[in-house]
């Protein structure tokens, strides 16, 4: 292992989540450990029921429909599938945010099994403080 990426996923927009998962894959390819803290709108996207609607960032504007169509047509894996794939290859751990989970009454069992634990921000920042790279998306 050389270095560590601490990734905080906040946005529930699909393109930001995809960017996050792809950046994480690059970190894995560089033998970095990856810790992911999933909060707010991103946490809603890892509930088992899923969020009924996953959309692109507003800046996609009029291109949104076209981009969604191309992604579907080319069978681009979902961001969560990418996270699952890289966690088979590298040292990747996903944590859910306790504050948002408590606030919304979301329990660990209701989250996708990729989420290892629900932890507080202080614990995550404790793990993140020696990262070589920290990103908030």
């Amino acid at each position: 292992m050389s270095g560590k990426l601490s990734l905080i996923l906040f946005s529930g927009e699909m393109d930001k989540l995809m960017a996050g998962s792809i950046i994480a894959s690059g970190a894995v390819a560089n033998e970095m450990k990856v810790d992911i803290f999933v909060t707010f709108w991103a946490l809603l996207q890892v509930t088992k029921e899923g969020v009924h609607q996953i959309s692109l960032s507003p800046e996609a504007g009029p291109l949104a429909g076209e981009v969604m169509r191309v992604m579907h047509e080319k069978k681009i894996p979902s961001w969560l599938d990418t996270i699952r794939q890289i966690s088979e290859v590298g040292d990747v751990t996903v944590y859910g945010c306790a504050m948002f989970a408590d606030m919304m009454g979301i329990k660990k069992e209701e989250l996708d099994p990729i989420v290892k634990d629900i932890i507080g921000v202080s614990q995550f920042m404790g793990m993140a403080k020696d990262s070589t790279m920290t990103l908030f998306l």
């Binding site: 792809i22 894959s25 690059g26 894995v28 390819a29 080319k74 069978k75 681009i76 894996p77 990418t82 794939q85 890289i86 088979e88 290859v89 590298g90």
Partner: peptide, 17 residues
Amino acid sequence: RGSFCPGPLMEMIKAYK
């Protein structure tokens, strides 16, 4: 073939490991 970044590289690293 037909798989996009980072799929092929991740599959290669997995096979390597």
